[in-house]
Amino acid sequence: MAKQETESAAAVIDAVCAPDWTEILRQMILVRRFEEATEREFRRGKIGGYLHVYIGQEAVASGIISALRKGDILFTGYRDHAHALMLGSDPGRVMAELFGKSTGISKGKGGSMHLFDVEHGFYGGYGIVGGHLTLATGAAYALRYQGTDRITVCYFGDGAMNIGPFHEAMNMAGLWGHEGMAPIIFIIENNGYAMGTSVERHSALTDLAARVRAYDIPSEKVDGQDVFAVRGVAERVIRQVRENGTPYCIEAVTYRFSGHGAADILQPYRSKEEVEQHKHRDPIVILRNRLSELCGLKDDDVKRMEDAAAEEVARALKFAEESPQPEADELYRDVVAE
């Protein structure tokens, strides 16, 4: 009896440790260090315009993206650096984009809000809250129309759920799902605030996952700070969506540790205590502790990851710094094709 219990516990641990968690942890650490660097470079004036970092929300991107297949595609809003990096975009080229350089991932013409890397399945990077939801729905239709089993993942914040195109996209995805033509997963990154307006102040119904069910889209909530939980839901949902061509919505309850954007310094809409309290649930710490307890991760392993991330970010910064600005004639390119 005791032996059986031990064996089943071992099986559970094997299952828990089966995904390449160290790779996921490595990515999350890289993204964190990358984002911290962008905040510094913004203050130094190397990065212009708007800058929205992903610090605190890393598990939401990595838990889903790590479960995707090559060929799957992703759309998101303007808080988009993590998604690009986790899909496999080169950190140097992402940083160069933020620096407005010709080697940038969008040739220096998109900036922080418009990262694009079609080769890695990243279809942007959009600056109008909620504007990209319809695009992602159409893209999902196209993938089925072309007879593939590729899927679309569409990230957006809780704030996007109050704009008209959100409802139009959800309704059409729901309808097209009836025909198996909507292989799309909507991910609500519910970080509690639409910029500075809390969910309680911006959404009449605060159960956000429930709202999409009005469009016949099944949904569930997940702890967005716990990448194990996100990944678990993702695997099941991805399989279902890929198989049936039906939409699904995951509300990942998370929290952004930094301001809304680089200019959000005073943060009058939330208290320091609230932020500190949430920092106790840091997704990287949660994953690291879990891997130490269950999967034998050592402090040295973490140290190596931290060093590697620091090196990678330093390399990205150097590449961005040393890259040339776009040529003047780039101004007129890519306006139209012909």
Partner: peptide, 25 residues
Amino acid sequence: KRVIDTPIAEAGMAGTAVGMAMLGL
């Protein structure tokens, strides 16, 4: 599948069409 009756949702139909176009339709 090729002649799609949409809801009365102009943003929905224009936006989904943009997404389709980005994927090669």
